[in-house]
């Protein structure tokens, strides 16, 4: 029996019927909603590729039970780019070549996005902690950290432009 589930997804109220409330958000996004920007690496919380933002916090979608999302707010990587172009965090990853195969990238981008939403001026330690928990088998993390630093700079520049 399908049960209704209401939550906000990428700034829109959605009501969907789920067959199993214990299914994961990762399966819901990729399998049912066709939002395949969120990647499935390990499905057990290890790799971080599936990271999305729930109520402002970066969490692995593969560990998030959909039934626990009732009334909550979810953002996926599809939400970032807008009519004005890429999100500063995405821009930073492009500028610094913070990816090779790109599989881990949506996870890193969402984690850095959540960090900047909470703290627009994070320190180096905080950036390193944010990258932790998201395996990258290609880059060696140097360019990912460069991208995270660049994201802080771009975000600051954009905030000044708006002012």
């Amino acid at each position: 029996m399908a049960v209704p589930l209401r939550f906000r997804l990428n700034h829109e109220d959605v009501e969907i019927h789920v067959h199993d409330p214990a299914a994961t958000l990762l399966d819901l996004l990729r399998g049912d909603l066709g939002l395949t920007g969120t990647k499935s690496g390990c499905a057990i919380g290890y790799c971080g590729a599936c990271t999305v933002i729930v109520d402002g916090e970066a969490v692995p979608a593969c560990l998030q039970m959909v039934g626990l999302l009732e009334g909550r707010e979810v953002r996926t990587v599809e939400d970032l780019a807008g009519p004005g172009g890429l999100d500063p965090v995405q821009d930073a990853f492009v500028t610094c070549a913070g990816m090779q195969c790109g599989f881990c990238t949506p996870g890193h981008v969402m984690a850095v996005r959540a960090l900047l939403d909470r703290d627009p001026d994070p320190g180096e330690e905080e950036l390193r902690r944010t990258v932790d928990g998201n395996y990258c088998r290609c880059t060696g993390y140097v360019k990912i950290l460069d991208s995270a630093r660049e994201a802080v700079a771009l975000e600051r520049a954009r905030a000044q432009e708006v002012r």
Partner: peptide, 9 residues
């Protein structure tokens, strides 16, 4: 425990 992302859950 685990990673910061998991500790939030």
């Amino acid at each position: 425990v685990a990673t910061a992302r998991i500790r939030r859950m």
